[in-house]
Amino acid sequence: MDIQITALSKTYGSGRSAVRALRGVDLTIGEGMFGLLGPNGAGKTTLMRILAGLVNPTSGRVMVAGHDLSTERGKVAVKAMLGYLPQELGLYPELTARQFLDYMAILKGLDDVRTRRARVDRTLEMAGLADVADRRLKGFSGGMKRRVGIAQALLNDPRILIVDEPTAGLDPEERIRFRNLLVDLASDRIVILSTHIVEDICQTCRDMAVLDRGLVRFRGSPADLIARARGVVWQIRTENGHKPDGGLVVVSTLQLANGVRYRVVGRDASAHPGAEPAQPSLEDGYVWLMQAKDALPGGE
């Protein structure tokens, strides 16, 4: 089972106000965790909504497990095997978690009362909501609402799980829990995770892509992206606090007792005598990738 995306483009609006959210994306996504990384406005949500059958592409083709998403029938077939957690999750505040899930299960076509009840109980448990199942959603914290979101996505035991920035706004513990849950789920299904938190991908995905302004900038494993930054990551210590320049991009800054330590990426740090080479991380690889593109002629 896989997802094949060919020459996918999406333009919102037309004329002068047109926004090209996707500009010819080619991707094949197989089973396991797939991470989609990219800055704000890269087109991640657009791509996920297309995969969820909510947005029609302007051109290009998407095949999900052999179903063509451009047909109504294909869309319904794909939606039936899909779990989707939108970036902006709305809930009905007056319903309890259990009622909400029951309602969503009905919409997903779980018509038999007993199977549905069992399924709702199971997902409540998986998402760690069993204790608060009968409380109204309006009293839920942000993290609990996210859990309801993931529980809802799992109701139909989906073959494909699409989660759009699920860890935004979660505390570290909750984020780790969530990531582990996704990894567990990915053992026998496709899980697509979008995020701009590099660490989330690093910890979970074997396969990933970097999307930027509608184009795929990188495709491969996190290790490949890290490898790209080999030899271009440096640590520089300065006492006067002058920011390193000369084509170097600062990844992080650490205030020390006697100066500042910068972590930078750049081809050449010879202008800074104290620069020491450092082991690249995924974040370095990402920053290196993004700055390399900024330096391209034409500024694309």
Binding site: A52, L54, V76, L89, G90, M104, L107, K108, G109
Partner: peptide
């Protein structure tokens, strides 16, 4: 968004 994502 969830309503429309349902297979119906």
């Amino acid at each position: 968004e969830l309503q429309l994502a349902a297979p119906r």
